[in-house]
């Protein structure tokens, strides 16, 4: 177990998680105004019409696959009748389908971003960094699936990576599990961790704003001017005069 192993599989995940959580809390508290999809649809629609739904649907499938493959112990899946073979088939083929959607979608989106000048000019440095991390995570992940699972004999990450992730999650990181995993998986995990660390500081935060509340709220929203004090927050030292509450 080298120092690198300990840093990568025993320290980095916790650093990344801390950055992820603290970063989100900070961003949510101090940057509500910057919290948006930063859509570029008003610049260009034709390519976006194809690329964006493909990418988003694909990446949601990929996320679901990761939950099933990494977080759910395989014994639980055995219990509901999904044996090793069935899982492997599903993971490989559904995963490949999702990967194709995601990769093609992302390619269209990146092409669009680069070639449509107004979109390119609206791209911040943070966006570019995010695209690198996202592209790396998706690229290595796809490569790992293709090389190891489709061409190769099939690498059983549910014996190594999955239990390692769960061990990290209950604060008993089992670094030895990650010994000798294929290099593409190593790259995928590391770039994925990098992406998670960048997450709160990029436009990716819009993921947490998925508007499911829209399904249940009344159509017309009313708000009182008084409730929001004319749109402005209060300032220390300028509280209105009022009787103090006797309740403590």
């Amino acid at each position: 177990m080298s120092a690198t192993d300990i840093l990568l599989w025993g320290v980095l995940p916790y650093v990344v998680t801390a950055v992820f959580i603290v970063g989100h809390v900070w961003r949510y508290r101090y940057d509500q105004f910057g919290w948006t999809t930063r859509s570029s649809e008003v610049y260009e629609k034709k390519l976006l019409r194809w690329g964006s739904p493909m990418f988003h649907v694909g990446v949601l499938m990929v996320a679901g696959g990761h939950v099933v493959g990494l977080l759910i112990p395989r014994e639980w899946l055995y219990a509901i009748g999904i044996d090793e073979h069935a899982y492997h088939l599903g993971a490989t083929w559904l995963g490949t389908f999702a990967a194709v959607l995601t990769v093609v979608g992302l390619t269209i989106l990146i092409y669009r971003r680069r070639r449509t000048r107004s979109v390119f000019l609206a791209t911040t440095r943070m966006d570019k960094l995010m695209f690198v991390a996202l592209g790396a995570a998706i690229g290595f992940g796809t490569a790992a699936t293709v090389v190891e699972q489709i061409i190769g004999g099939g690498y059983n990450y549910r014996e190594t990576i999955s239990p390692w992730i769960r061990s990290v999650m209950y604060f008993q990181p089992d670094i030895a599990l990650m010994d000798g995993i294929p290099v593409l998986f190593t790259l995928h995990v590391v770039s994925g961790l990098l992406l998670i660390a960048l997450w709160p500081f990029t436009r990716l935060v819009h993921v947490w704003s998925a508007p499911v509340g829209y399904l249940v709220r009344p159509y017309i929203v009313y708000r009182s001017r008084d409730a929001q004090q004319g749109m402005r927050e209060g300032r220390p030292g300028w509280d209105p005069v009022e009787t103090r509450s006797r309740k403590r």
Partner: peptide
Amino acid sequence: YKREEDGIVLVDQDQCRGW
């Protein structure tokens, strides 16, 4: 939202997520 007091329709810039 529509303001209760005077009916002016406004966008809460902090809550808008750009959909």
